[in-house]
Protein backbone atom coordinates (compact mmCIF):
# COMPACT_ATOMS: atom_id res chain seq x y z
CA UNK A 1 0.00 0.00 0.00
CA UNK A 2 2.67 2.45 0.95
CA UNK A 3 4.67 1.71 -2.14
CA UNK A 4 1.60 2.25 -4.25
CA UNK A 5 0.86 5.56 -2.58
CA UNK A 6 4.41 6.79 -3.06
CA UNK A 7 4.27 5.86 -6.70
CA UNK A 8 1.01 7.70 -7.17
CA UNK A 9 2.25 10.80 -5.37
CA UNK A 10 5.36 10.87 -7.52
CA UNK A 11 3.23 10.57 -10.63
CA UNK A 12 1.02 13.36 -9.36
CA UNK A 13 3.96 15.68 -8.97
CA UNK A 14 5.15 14.91 -12.47
CA UNK A 15 1.65 15.51 -13.81
CA UNK A 16 1.39 18.86 -12.10
CA UNK A 17 4.78 19.90 -13.37
CA UNK A 18 3.66 18.99 -16.88
CA UNK A 19 0.50 21.05 -16.43
CA UNK A 20 2.53 24.03 -15.29
CA UNK A 21 4.90 23.82 -18.21
CA UNK A 22 2.31 23.24 -20.88
CA UNK A 23 0.05 26.00 -19.58
CA UNK A 24 2.98 28.37 -19.43
CA UNK A 25 3.92 27.65 -23.02
CA UNK A 26 0.36 27.84 -24.30
CA UNK A 27 -0.37 30.99 -22.40
CA UNK A 28 2.56 32.84 -23.84
CA UNK A 29 1.97 31.63 -27.34
CA UNK A 30 -1.49 33.12 -27.56
CA UNK A 31 -1.29 36.59 -29.07
CA UNK A 32 -2.03 39.54 -26.90
CA UNK A 33 -0.91 40.46 -23.44
CA UNK A 34 -2.51 41.82 -20.30
CA UNK A 35 -1.95 45.49 -21.03
CA UNK A 36 -3.06 45.99 -24.58
CA UNK A 37 -6.64 46.10 -23.42
CA UNK A 38 -6.52 49.80 -22.86
CA UNK A 39 -5.22 50.43 -26.32
CA UNK A 40 -4.65 54.06 -25.53
CA UNK A 41 -1.72 53.34 -23.32
CA UNK A 42 1.44 55.12 -24.39
CA UNK A 43 4.38 52.94 -25.21
CA UNK A 44 6.42 54.03 -22.21
CA UNK A 45 3.73 53.22 -19.73
CA UNK A 46 3.27 49.90 -21.43
CA UNK A 47 6.92 49.14 -21.06
CA UNK A 48 6.75 50.22 -17.45
CA UNK A 49 4.09 47.69 -16.80
CA UNK A 50 5.89 44.94 -18.65
CA UNK A 51 8.94 45.58 -16.54
CA UNK A 52 6.98 45.62 -13.34
CA UNK A 53 5.63 42.17 -13.97
CA UNK A 54 8.82 40.78 -15.33
CA UNK A 55 7.35 40.25 -18.77
CA UNK A 56 10.26 41.93 -20.47
CA UNK A 57 12.61 39.10 -19.60
CA UNK A 58 13.12 36.15 -21.90
CA UNK A 59 10.56 33.41 -21.57
CA UNK A 60 12.92 30.79 -20.23
CA UNK A 61 13.97 33.11 -17.45
CA UNK A 62 10.38 33.90 -16.63
CA UNK A 63 9.69 30.19 -16.46
CA UNK A 64 12.48 29.46 -14.00
CA UNK A 65 11.54 32.38 -11.81
CA UNK A 66 7.98 31.26 -11.81
CA UNK A 67 8.81 27.66 -10.93
CA UNK A 68 10.87 28.91 -8.06
CA UNK A 69 7.97 30.90 -6.71
CA UNK A 70 5.55 28.02 -7.11
CA UNK A 71 7.68 25.70 -5.06
CA UNK A 72 7.51 28.21 -2.26
CA UNK A 73 3.76 28.41 -2.64
CA UNK A 74 3.71 31.91 -4.05
CA UNK A 75 1.54 32.28 -7.11
CA UNK A 76 2.51 35.88 -7.62
CA UNK A 77 0.60 39.09 -8.22
CA UNK A 78 -2.39 39.42 -10.44
CA UNK A 79 -1.89 41.77 -13.34
CA UNK A 80 -5.41 43.06 -13.35
CA UNK A 81 -6.06 43.50 -9.69
CA UNK A 82 -3.89 45.83 -7.72
CA UNK A 83 -5.64 44.78 -4.58
CA UNK A 84 -5.10 41.09 -4.23
CA UNK A 85 -2.40 38.60 -4.99
CA UNK A 86 -3.20 35.39 -6.73
CA UNK A 87 -2.82 33.56 -3.43
CA UNK A 88 -5.43 35.90 -1.92
CA UNK A 89 -7.82 35.22 -4.73
CA UNK A 90 -7.39 31.48 -4.51
CA UNK A 91 -7.71 31.55 -0.76
CA UNK A 92 -10.89 33.55 -1.05
CA UNK A 93 -12.42 31.87 -4.04
CA UNK A 94 -11.62 28.26 -3.32
CA UNK A 95 -13.81 27.67 -0.24
CA UNK A 96 -16.74 29.12 -2.13
CA UNK A 97 -16.21 26.91 -5.13
CA UNK A 98 -15.49 23.94 -2.91
CA UNK A 99 -18.67 24.46 -0.99
CA UNK A 100 -20.82 24.46 -4.07
CA UNK A 101 -18.80 21.66 -5.59
CA UNK A 102 -19.17 19.43 -2.57
CA UNK A 103 -22.83 20.21 -2.25
CA UNK A 104 -23.35 19.30 -5.88
CA UNK A 105 -21.24 16.19 -5.51
CA UNK A 106 -23.27 15.05 -2.53
CA UNK A 107 -26.50 15.60 -4.38
CA UNK A 108 -25.17 13.69 -7.34
CA UNK A 109 -23.71 10.83 -5.31
CA UNK A 110 -26.81 10.37 -3.20
CA UNK A 111 -29.50 10.78 -5.80
CA UNK A 112 -27.73 9.60 -8.92
CA UNK A 113 -27.14 5.96 -8.01
CA UNK A 114 -30.47 5.87 -6.19
CA UNK A 115 -32.24 6.98 -9.34
CA UNK A 116 -30.30 4.46 -11.38
CA UNK A 117 -31.10 1.63 -8.97
CA UNK A 118 -34.79 2.49 -8.98
CA UNK A 119 -34.75 2.52 -12.75
CA UNK A 120 -33.05 -0.88 -12.90
CA UNK A 121 -35.39 -2.46 -10.40
CA UNK A 122 -38.41 -1.26 -12.34
CA UNK A 123 -37.05 -1.88 -15.76
CA UNK A 124 -39.36 -0.78 -18.57
CA UNK A 125 -41.99 0.43 -16.16
CA UNK A 126 -42.75 4.05 -15.54
CA UNK A 127 -40.23 4.68 -12.74
CA UNK A 128 -37.60 3.53 -15.18
CA UNK A 129 -38.82 5.84 -17.92
CA UNK A 130 -39.04 8.83 -15.66
CA UNK A 131 -35.60 8.23 -14.19
CA UNK A 132 -34.07 7.85 -17.59
CA UNK A 133 -35.76 10.97 -18.92
CA UNK A 134 -34.32 12.90 -16.03
CA UNK A 135 -30.94 11.37 -16.77
CA UNK A 136 -31.05 12.27 -20.44
CA UNK A 137 -32.06 15.82 -19.65
CA UNK A 138 -29.26 16.07 -17.16
CA UNK A 139 -26.68 14.85 -19.61
CA UNK A 140 -27.81 16.75 -22.68
CA UNK A 141 -28.99 20.10 -21.42
CA UNK A 142 -25.96 22.32 -20.92
CA UNK A 143 -25.55 23.59 -17.40
CA UNK A 144 -25.80 27.22 -18.43
CA UNK A 145 -29.26 26.66 -19.79
CA UNK A 146 -30.24 24.84 -16.61
CA UNK A 147 -28.83 27.67 -14.56
CA UNK A 148 -30.68 30.29 -16.54
CA UNK A 149 -33.90 28.29 -16.38
CA UNK A 150 -33.54 27.90 -12.64
CA UNK A 151 -33.06 31.61 -12.21
CA UNK A 152 -35.92 32.58 -14.40
CA UNK A 153 -38.47 30.11 -13.16
CA UNK A 154 -37.44 29.11 -9.69
CA UNK A 155 -35.51 31.99 -8.19
CA UNK A 156 -37.90 34.60 -9.52
CA UNK A 157 -40.98 32.81 -8.27
CA UNK A 158 -39.86 31.38 -4.97
CA UNK A 159 -39.22 34.26 -2.62
CA UNK A 160 -36.75 32.60 -0.31
CA UNK A 161 -34.52 31.55 -3.21
CA UNK A 162 -32.16 34.43 -3.96
CA UNK A 163 -31.52 35.40 -7.57
CA UNK A 164 -27.81 34.85 -7.83
CA UNK A 165 -25.11 36.22 -5.59
CA UNK A 166 -23.62 34.78 -2.45
CA UNK A 167 -23.91 35.11 1.28
CA UNK A 168 -26.03 32.42 2.80
CA UNK A 169 -26.83 28.77 2.44
CA UNK A 170 -29.91 29.62 0.41
CA UNK A 171 -27.65 31.17 -2.20
CA UNK A 172 -25.95 27.86 -2.75
CA UNK A 173 -29.05 25.78 -3.39
CA UNK A 174 -29.81 26.59 -7.01
CA UNK A 175 -26.23 26.69 -8.23
CA UNK A 176 -25.40 23.31 -6.67
CA UNK A 177 -28.57 21.86 -8.07
CA UNK A 178 -27.78 23.12 -11.54
CA UNK A 179 -24.24 21.86 -11.21
CA UNK A 180 -25.30 18.47 -9.85
CA UNK A 181 -27.60 17.58 -12.71
CA UNK A 182 -25.03 16.34 -15.14
CA UNK A 183 -23.05 14.19 -12.74
CA UNK A 184 -26.30 12.94 -11.25
CA UNK A 185 -27.44 11.88 -14.65
CA UNK A 186 -24.16 10.20 -15.48
CA UNK A 187 -24.13 8.30 -12.22
CA UNK A 188 -27.76 7.31 -12.66
CA UNK A 189 -27.24 5.87 -16.09
CA UNK A 190 -24.11 4.09 -15.11
CA UNK A 191 -25.73 2.67 -12.01
CA UNK A 192 -28.74 1.54 -13.96
CA UNK A 193 -26.77 -0.49 -16.44
CA UNK A 194 -24.53 -1.80 -13.70
CA UNK A 195 -27.52 -2.84 -11.61
CA UNK A 196 -29.21 -4.50 -14.54
CA UNK A 197 -26.11 -6.51 -15.16
CA UNK A 198 -25.76 -7.47 -11.53
CA UNK A 199 -29.41 -8.38 -11.17
CA UNK A 200 -28.99 -10.91 -13.92
CA UNK A 201 -26.07 -12.56 -12.18
CA UNK A 202 -26.22 -16.01 -10.65
CA UNK A 203 -25.37 -14.92 -7.15
CA UNK A 204 -28.49 -12.83 -7.03
CA UNK A 205 -30.41 -15.99 -7.74
CA UNK A 206 -28.50 -17.68 -4.96
CA UNK A 207 -29.31 -14.87 -2.59
CA UNK A 208 -32.97 -15.08 -3.43
CA UNK A 209 -32.93 -18.81 -3.04
CA UNK A 210 -31.79 -18.34 0.51
CA UNK A 211 -35.11 -16.73 1.20
CA UNK A 212 -33.83 -13.35 2.24
CA UNK A 213 -36.10 -10.41 1.65
CA UNK A 214 -36.08 -8.48 -1.61
CA UNK A 215 -34.90 -5.35 0.08
CA UNK A 216 -31.90 -7.14 1.51
CA UNK A 217 -31.10 -8.74 -1.82
CA UNK A 218 -31.17 -5.38 -3.50
CA UNK A 219 -29.29 -3.45 -0.93
CA UNK A 220 -26.77 -5.89 0.36
CA UNK A 221 -26.16 -8.00 -2.69
CA UNK A 222 -27.07 -6.05 -5.77
CA UNK A 223 -26.18 -2.49 -4.89
CA UNK A 224 -22.95 -3.45 -3.27
CA UNK A 225 -21.74 -5.04 -6.47
CA UNK A 226 -23.35 -2.58 -8.82
CA UNK A 227 -21.78 0.40 -7.13
CA UNK A 228 -18.23 -0.70 -7.96
CA UNK A 229 -18.10 0.43 -11.60
CA UNK A 230 -19.91 3.59 -10.56
CA UNK A 231 -17.17 4.42 -8.07
CA UNK A 232 -14.64 4.02 -10.83
CA UNK A 233 -16.19 6.81 -12.86
CA UNK A 234 -16.36 9.18 -9.91
CA UNK A 235 -13.07 10.63 -11.01
CA UNK A 236 -14.43 11.62 -14.40
CA UNK A 237 -17.62 12.85 -12.79
CA UNK A 238 -15.64 15.05 -10.47
CA UNK A 239 -13.68 16.57 -13.34
CA UNK A 240 -16.89 17.36 -15.19
CA UNK A 241 -18.15 18.96 -12.03
CA UNK A 242 -15.20 21.26 -11.85
CA UNK A 243 -15.50 22.25 -15.48
CA UNK A 244 -19.20 22.88 -15.10
CA UNK A 245 -18.60 25.03 -12.09
CA UNK A 246 -17.04 27.83 -14.16
CA UNK A 247 -20.21 28.40 -16.08
CA UNK A 248 -22.48 28.06 -13.07
CA UNK A 249 -20.40 30.48 -11.06
CA UNK A 250 -20.60 33.03 -13.81
CA UNK A 251 -24.33 32.74 -14.24
CA UNK A 252 -25.17 32.86 -10.58
CA UNK A 253 -22.55 35.45 -9.73
CA UNK A 254 -20.77 33.22 -7.25
CA UNK A 255 -17.44 34.70 -6.12
CA UNK A 256 -15.54 31.48 -6.54
CA UNK A 257 -12.46 30.32 -8.35
CA UNK A 258 -14.28 29.51 -11.58
CA UNK A 259 -15.02 33.15 -12.29
CA UNK A 260 -11.34 34.01 -11.98
CA UNK A 261 -10.45 31.22 -14.29
CA UNK A 262 -12.50 32.61 -17.15
CA UNK A 263 -11.89 36.31 -16.71
CA UNK A 264 -8.17 35.79 -16.24
CA UNK A 265 -7.93 34.22 -19.68
CA UNK A 266 -9.75 37.13 -21.31
CA UNK A 267 -7.52 39.56 -19.50
CA UNK A 268 -4.35 37.64 -20.27
CA UNK A 269 -3.66 37.87 -16.58
CA UNK A 270 -0.78 35.40 -16.66
CA UNK A 271 -0.18 34.81 -12.97
CA UNK A 272 -3.86 34.31 -12.30
CA UNK A 273 -4.24 31.94 -15.24
CA UNK A 274 -1.29 29.91 -14.06
CA UNK A 275 -2.40 30.01 -10.45
CA UNK A 276 -5.92 28.83 -11.08
CA UNK A 277 -4.86 26.20 -13.58
CA UNK A 278 -2.27 24.72 -11.29
CA UNK A 279 -4.64 24.80 -8.39
CA UNK A 280 -7.29 22.94 -10.32
CA UNK A 281 -4.72 20.46 -11.55
CA UNK A 282 -3.74 19.71 -7.98
CA UNK A 283 -7.32 19.26 -6.94
CA UNK A 284 -8.03 16.92 -9.80
CA UNK A 285 -4.98 14.83 -9.23
CA UNK A 286 -5.77 14.50 -5.55
CA UNK A 287 -9.38 13.63 -6.28
CA UNK A 288 -8.47 10.96 -8.75
CA UNK A 289 -6.06 9.47 -6.28
CA UNK A 290 -8.73 9.39 -3.59
CA UNK A 291 -11.19 7.76 -5.93
CA UNK A 292 -8.69 5.11 -6.94
CA UNK A 293 -7.86 4.29 -3.36
CA UNK A 294 -11.51 4.20 -2.42
CA UNK A 295 -12.18 1.81 -5.25
CA UNK A 296 -9.45 -0.47 -4.09
CA UNK A 297 -10.69 -0.45 -0.55
CA UNK A 298 -14.21 -1.27 -1.56
CA UNK A 299 -13.53 -4.08 -3.98
CA UNK A 300 -12.11 -7.05 -2.13
CA UNK A 301 -10.95 -8.67 -5.31
CA UNK A 302 -8.18 -6.10 -5.68
CA UNK A 303 -5.20 -6.83 -3.54
CA UNK A 304 -3.55 -3.89 -1.85
CA UNK A 305 -0.87 -5.65 0.09
CA UNK A 306 1.63 -8.25 -0.84
CA UNK A 307 0.57 -10.62 1.91
CA UNK A 308 -2.38 -12.33 0.30
CA UNK A 309 -4.87 -13.91 2.57
Amino acid sequence: MKKYLLKRVAMAIVTIWAVITITFILMHSVPGDPFRQESKMPKVVYENLLRKYGLDRPLSEQYIIYLGKIIRGDFGDSMKSRVETVNDMIRRGFPVSAFIGLEALLIAIIFGPALGAIAALNQNKWPDYISMIIAIIGVSVPSFIMGTVFIQFLARNISWLPIGGWGSFAHSILPSLALALMPLAQLARYMRSSMLEVLGQDYIKTAKSKGISNATVVLRHAVRNAILPVVSILGTVATNLIAGSFVIEKIFGIPGLGMFFITSINNRDYPLIMGTTIFYAIILVVMLLIVDIAYMLIDPRIKLTKEGR
Partner: peptide, 14 residues
Amino acid sequence: ILNDENTAWQKYLG
Protein backbone atom coordinates in the same frame (compact mmCIF):
# COMPACT_ATOMS: atom_id res chain seq x y z
CA ILE B 1 -20.47 42.13 -8.47
CA LEU B 2 -22.37 39.97 -10.88
CA ASN B 3 -20.86 39.19 -14.23
CA ASP B 4 -23.73 37.67 -16.08
CA GLU B 5 -25.95 40.37 -17.51
CA ASN B 6 -28.91 38.06 -17.90
CA THR B 7 -28.86 37.05 -14.27
CA ALA B 8 -28.48 40.72 -13.37
CA TRP B 9 -31.57 41.52 -15.39
CA GLN B 10 -33.48 38.78 -13.59
CA LYS B 11 -32.46 40.33 -10.31
CA TYR B 12 -33.73 43.69 -11.47
CA LEU B 13 -37.03 42.15 -12.50
CA GLY B 14 -37.21 40.35 -9.20
